[in-house]
């Protein structure tokens, strides 16, 4: 499924995105606040859903090759995170949905 469609599924507000990402096919979602766990998962080009707002969630996303980080629970990433997203080339978005709701919405959109 296209990244743009997944972002719509969680009614995400996009804070920074690489226009080339919109058409990127995303088949995996990692939903976690524990970056240690995210680093253990073998999912190709995932979307990372997390309620952890920190530079380290973006750096972890970068290390595991994620295309996008969606911040859940209505949290607002600070401006320096938006800058880092741009630097790392990772689409950064936020949603008002709770992490569970957002997980369910993403799962449904992916037909799981």
């Amino acid at each position: 499924m296209k990244l743009s469609e997944l972002l719509q599924a969680v009614e995400a507000e996009v804070l920074w995105s690489d226009p080339a990402h919109d058409a990127t096919d995303v088949a995996n979602v990692i939903s976690s606040d524990l970056m240690s766990d995210v680093l253990m998962m073998d999912a190709e080009q995932p979307l990372l859903l997390s309620s952890l707002v920190s530079d380290q969630s973006l750096r972890t996303a970068n290390v595991v090759g994620a295309v996008a980080l969606v911040v859940a629970n209505g949290k607002i990433p600070p401006p320096n995170m938006v800058e880092l997203a741009q630097e790392l080339g990772i689409t950064l978005a936020r949603t008002e949905m709770a992490k569970f709701e957002a997980s369910v919405a993403l799962g449904k959109a992916l037909g799981r």
């Binding site: 606040d33 524990l34 970056m35 240690s36 766990d37 680093l39 253990m40 997390s50 952890l52 920190s54 380290q56 969630s57 972890t60």
Partner: peptide, 8 residues
């Protein structure tokens, strides 16, 4: 910070 799970 999302770390310290003893997995590093």
């Amino acid at each position: 910070m999302g770390f310290g799970a003893g997995m590093g």
